[in-house]
Amino acid sequence: MYKFALIWLVLCLSTVTEGKPASENLLVEKQIFTTHQFELFNGKVLPEVKVGWESYGKLNADKSNAILVTHYFTGTSHAAGKYHSDDETAGYWDAIIGPGKAIDTNRYFVVSVDSLANINAYDENVVTTGPASINPQTNQPWGLDFPVVTIRDFVNIQKAVLQSLGIETLHAVIGPSMGSMQALDWAAAYPEQVKRVISVIGSGESDAWTTAMLEQWTLPIKLDPKWNNGNYAKDHPPVEGLVASLMLITQQALTPAFFNNQGNMLSYAPLERGPLNDINMSHTIVNWLKQRAASRTEKMDANSLLYLARACQLYVAGHQHSLKKGLKRVTAPSLFLPSESDLLLMPYLAEGPHQLLNQSSKLLTLEGQFGHLEGVVNVQQHAEAITTFLNNPVR
């Protein structure tokens, strides 16, 4: 029951704690980084970019103890700690980030950055430049005029944040899901700056299956009449389309075992009276899924979901024409942590780059019935392996 409550929290709030209690004295503050004339991977230029970032621990004198944590698709830079001591939940990886934890903030300076086009564009604790932002040239929201962004662009804005802090090398880059894509691309793009990389519930590229699946996430939004080709007002968004999209994402991020257990808790049955007598009524499990999705939409932007999906579709580590070519420059030791029950980024997507990186790579499997979400709510099952990997010397 406790883990089911945790899953509910991560679905509704995109933050979760499990295992060890939230660090009572790990209070964090959102910082803002601004840059101008930011060139994207496709050659287009954003006149201004603002992103939020936060940090945990202290940077040492020679600035060699920095670890970058890159967040997942619906996540933010709030990886650990709390903004206020009375916050109900801590950052999504609080179980492994903090004093004495796997990523020990007594030893490391941990940084996390809000992505470009962050889906949580209307969250007061998120700072991002994306389609919901104001285009300084028109004084109106960018909408679909916002240029296409890639995983490499997320990496490059993080690099700019780190440079503003005087950080030139990273002890490690680690992230789950879409964050794992950024972590591996960091190692391929800037091998001289990355000493270690940890890919959690990740992949080396978006294969044909994954690209088609990601497209399914975008269709409910595009089919919602209120979407209006991306030209919707903040107070009249395509909520129904966004809810339907989040329903898809949520189900694919979990497993049949989880849903069947949830159905038992709801007393789900195929021949429920409502659906039997009225085509407009849904089963209890469908209502549960829709309610969870709807509870997340208030601070989310539908267009931003489209941009994040496209960034993931365009992903191949190293941003070359093949994964093999893209990974050739990687010199950092790597640790892959796929989830055995993952139906979203299935384990074979981590096994591919692991095999290409050969002797410099290690792979351990996350076990459990929570599918893709094992890498968010249960990553601490490999806390010891993470600690050992971070402590191992590298050449």
Rank of each mutant, 00 (worst) to 15 (best):
N156K: 12
I198Y: 04
E205N: 12
V194C: 11
T211I: 09
A183I: 08
I201L: 00
S180D: 02
A189E: 14
E168T: 15
N156V: 05
Q193F: 01
D207S: 08
G179T: 00
W209V: 12
I198E: 00
A189F: 12
D207I: 11
G179R: 02
A183M: 05
G204H: 06
G166I: 03
I167H: 09
T210Q: 14
K159F: 12
N156Q: 12
L214Y: 11
R196K: 15
G175Y: 01
W209L: 02
M181W: 08
A187Q: 04
Q182D: 08
Q193V: 13
I167M: 09
A188I: 02
I174R: 04
V161G: 02
Q163P: 00
G179E: 02
A208F: 14
L162H: 10
S180P: 01
V197K: 06
S206Y: 04
A160P: 07
A189H: 12
T169I: 13
A172M: 10
Q163F: 06
S180K: 00
A172R: 00
S180F: 03
L162Y: 11
Q182P: 07
T169E: 14
E215T: 15
M178E: 07
S164P: 15
E168Q: 15
N156C: 10
H171Y: 03
D207F: 08
I167N: 07
I174S: 00
V194P: 03
A212S: 15
M178L: 11
I201S: 03
G202L: 02
I174V: 15
E168K: 14
S203R: 12
S206L: 00
E205W: 11
G179N: 01
Y190E: 14
I174C: 11
Q158N: 15
A208N: 10
D185R: 04
W209D: 12
